[in-house]
Computed example of a mutant assay.
Amino acid sequence: MPLTKKYLKTKPVCKVTFTVPAAEATTVAVAGDFNNWDTTASLKKLKNGSFKGTFDIPTEQSYEFRYVIDGEWTNEQEADRFEWNSYAATENSVIEL
């Protein structure tokens, strides 16, 4: 599940593109600190079966996030690191910006 970052020179923002290969899925969303864990932040399904979405996220911070694929929470395997979440009793993906 690739994750790409594009830093803007004119603003303290990074354009982060989330790409999730999930050909069998109906919906994929990304929820995290940067969007108040909004599970309705759906990614767009592409013709090749993957889901993709780009978010403008403030820089100089780290953010925990997870994907919600057809209601199932999952991590980004290529995250910058993982952080234990006691509330959910699992690890969250972390992106460092």
Rank of each mutant, 00 (worst) to 15 (best):
S42N: 15
S42K: 14
S42M: 14
S42T: 11
S42G: 14
L43T: 02
L43E: 05
L43K: 00
L43P: 06
K44G: 09
K44A: 10
K44F: 03
K44C: 06
K45R: 06
L46R: 15
L46I: 11
L46T: 12
L46P: 12
K47Q: 09
K47M: 06
N48S: 07
N48D: 08
N48K: 04
G49D: 06
G49P: 07
G49H: 05
S50R: 08
S50H: 09
S50G: 07
F51W: 02
F51E: 00
K52D: 00
K52N: 02
G53H: 04
G53A: 01
T54M: 02
T54D: 04
T54W: 05
T54K: 05
F55M: 13
F55A: 14
D56Q: 04
I57E: 03
P58H: 09
P58E: 10
P58R: 05
T59L: 13
E60Q: 12
E60M: 09
E60G: 11
E60V: 11
Q61Y: 00
Q61A: 02
Q61M: 04
Q61R: 04
S62H: 13
S62G: 15
S62E: 13
Y63Q: 00
Y63R: 03
E64M: 06
E64S: 07
E64C: 07
F65I: 11
F65P: 10
R66C: 03
R66P: 01
R66N: 01
R66G: 02
R66S: 01
Y67M: 03
Y67I: 03
V68Q: 05
V68I: 09
I69A: 02
I69Y: 03
I69M: 03
I69S: 02
I69Q: 02
I69T: 05
D70P: 05
G71F: 03
G71H: 00
G71A: 01
G71Q: 00
E72P: 03
E72W: 09
T74D: 15
T74I: 04
T74G: 08
T74S: 12
E76I: 07
E76S: 13
E76N: 15
E76M: 11
Q77L: 14
Q77I: 13
Q77S: 12
Q77V: 12
E78C: 04
A79E: 09
A79P: 14
D80A: 03
D80F: 08
D80I: 07
D80L: 07
R81N: 15
R81S: 15
R81W: 14
R81M: 15
R81Y: 15
F82P: 10
F82K: 13
F82S: 15
F82E: 12
F82R: 13
E83C: 12
W84N: 10
W84C: 10
N85F: 13
N85W: 11
N85T: 14
N85C: 15
S86H: 09
S86V: 09
A88D: 11
A88H: 05
A89K: 08
A89M: 01
T90E: 10
T90A: 08
